[in-house]
Design a protein around this nucleic acid. Sequence first.
RNA 1: UGGGGUAUCGCCAAGCGGUAAGGCACUUGCUUUUGGUGCAAGCAUUCGGGGGUUCGAAUCCCUCUACCCCAUCCA
Length: 749
Amino acid sequence: MSESKDFLRMIVEEDLKSGKYKEVVTRFPPEPNGFPHIGHAKSIVINFGIANDYNGHCNLRMDDTNPTKEDTKYVEALKDAVEWLGFQWGDDVHFTSDYFSKIYDYAVELIKMDKAYVDSASEDETRENRGTVKQAGKRSKYAQRSVEENLDLFERMKNGEFKDGEHVLRAKIDMSAANMKMRDPLLYRIRNVHHFRADNKWSIYPMYDFAHCLSDYIEGVSHSICTLEFENNRDVYNWVLDTLGLTTSRPYQHEFARLGINYTVMSKRKLLELVQGGQVSGWDDPRMPTIAGYRRRGYTPESILNFCDQIGIAKANSMVDVAQLEFCIRDDLNTKVPRVLAVLDPLKVTIVNYEGNEEIDAPYYPHDVPKEGDRKIPFSKEIYIERDDFMENPPKGYFRLTPDQPVKLRHAYIITCKEIIKDTSGNIIEIKAEYIPNSLSGSDTSGIKVKSAIQWVSIAEAKKVEVRVYDRIFKDEAPEGIEDINPDSLKVIKNAFIEPAVITQKPDERFQFERQGYFYFDPIDSTDEHPVFNKIVGLKDSWSKKEKPAKSEAKPQTKKVQVDGEVIAMSEKQQTLFDKYTSIGLNTEVSNTLARDEQLSSFYEETLSELNSPIALANIVTNEVARELKQMQVDELKFSAKQIAELIKMVDDGTISNKIAKQVFEEMVISGENAAQIVENEGLVQISDPSVISPIIDEIIAKNPDNVAKFKAGNTKLLGFFVGQVLKTTGGKANPVVVNELVAKKLGE
RNA sequence: UGGGGUAUCGCCAAGCGGUAAGGCACUUGCUUUUGGUGCAAGCAUUCGGGGGUUCGAAUCCCUCUACCCCAUCCA
């Protein structure tokens, strides 16, 4: 449990606390028209996670309102994903199609209320009439149809009497709404097609905006959580529910930012393109960001869950670094998985002074992983090592085998290079080496210090395996489409070698091939004769980083200069006000704010007639009153100009501090009580007497020796900390000016 | 006649008027027979810019800027 809660959980907690809902009910509502990706995982974790955290429940609902795109195979993929991630959806999977009858009835109700009509305009006409973002739309002429006619037409639509596109059902809202979604949104369209669950029962299908809110309502959902792009749809969501009077314990929609990860794409359309274009082997290709893909790649559910936890939930569009995901899988596998030796790019080494063979005991887990298990590794005269692990002319800092540098064979002996065999074109094809007999791991008495240990396999006993090494599927950090595809995202190694225990003992499905990375026994293409391993992720590699440092990203130190845009000029009337305000001593900023806002200026004038304190009044009006006026009209305010004047008077005569004035104001906003009354009720009179404040300061100083030391060491910011503490213990009543002085004095001693 | 959102370190992200959390990445040491792991330390005098209010502002007010979403009979 992290100490800070995300904004959704804060909303849920408030709603539970206020008694808005007895139980929190969420839902994960995908459309079954594609395989779920890691973005869905985020949504799953949010919805099921919140339900779990607050003892509620979460439904799995297939939003199957568009029969032309949906299919059972996707339903199965979705169920698999949720299950694999470890969540339970209760008795049944829900389907929006289960509610088609109820949704139909609600539509009939809307028609009866004259809040919906059958529109028979063509698709083009409808689009044209919708207007643009800057221009109001025009309502269709069919909107005038009588309730009876609408009822009749709608029923006949349902009965399949019309062809696709002949009519639609529309909500009657507002064709000139600023929110385009509210311009008489479509509720139903005709689709004379087969639905994968409802068969041919329906000729009309509800649109998202109509079906979703009602499905949520029918299921008793309390918090309908979706992604940011539905923000505009929220108005329709609320309109439908409110208009139908479905207001008791109804759901509310909340939006969060969808997940983006760099070097991949997350839209179903683009993913489908990759599948259909043959760029990948399928939805479960290990390079795909689908759940099926990660699963096939070898990712664990725990790692995905952990990733979702780490990235948090917020409303800012963001792009998470894939390194964060890679960290999660490494972190998970590190403590779980056996280590074995495998050679991907073999270089033959003949140990000239070794004869016969032996079996070496080796633990599966390193000293820092508290797991038991070991195996025997065959050792003999002829072995393979990784081609990278030998260099004839090594760079500085190279720790592995060279003509002059011995190396340890992991779990086995130290060897030294005696001779390099090359083919006619100069490629190294074999190393002749000698081993140090008394250097066996665990009983090494050779006294030779090596800089590293490398993996190896004995040629005679090693199993040949296929290894598939994956790189990011796109070369661009924010890929647009197939043109950004990384042509080298898949490397198939047919002739990799692995120690035999992996195949015969099968100690796990996932392994760490020492020094190389984590690998997964591919569950689909592997057979006993032909094992296939997928590389899940490499180990962190600080050597190759050092060797070829990523091009130094010279920090663009340029402080971004921002040009200010033009400010709209004031009208004559505003200008007159502005001049007046500056002349009575207000600064230009305050004068400007006041002059440009009619509500504010008239409110200000009113306070001014009550009290001659132009600056203080202007300040509270432009700052605090303005905030309230953002949310309501003047006549909705609970407090009057006169009350504000009274409040400021108390500040002016020193009864209360500015800080307290704000507190009193908050109270006034809610209760509408007079300032004097609030001050009296809560005993908010300011304390300015140093003899009262002093001991409090002493106490706080005594309690925070660390911060005192830091302050004395030069961290003057801490003055604010001490002042804050004093104000806190006095309930805000201490005169901050006095406190500041005293604290500074005492700390200066 | 436009509307709705969002901006805090290279990438995520807490923070809700009183000391700028945490994770990833990065950089140093130390440990290590995986150049892994672990441990320790270092990484934002400043919160998109500019003003204002306040003893005190990432937090309140004004203003500007940038980015995202909306004109599917998709969801």
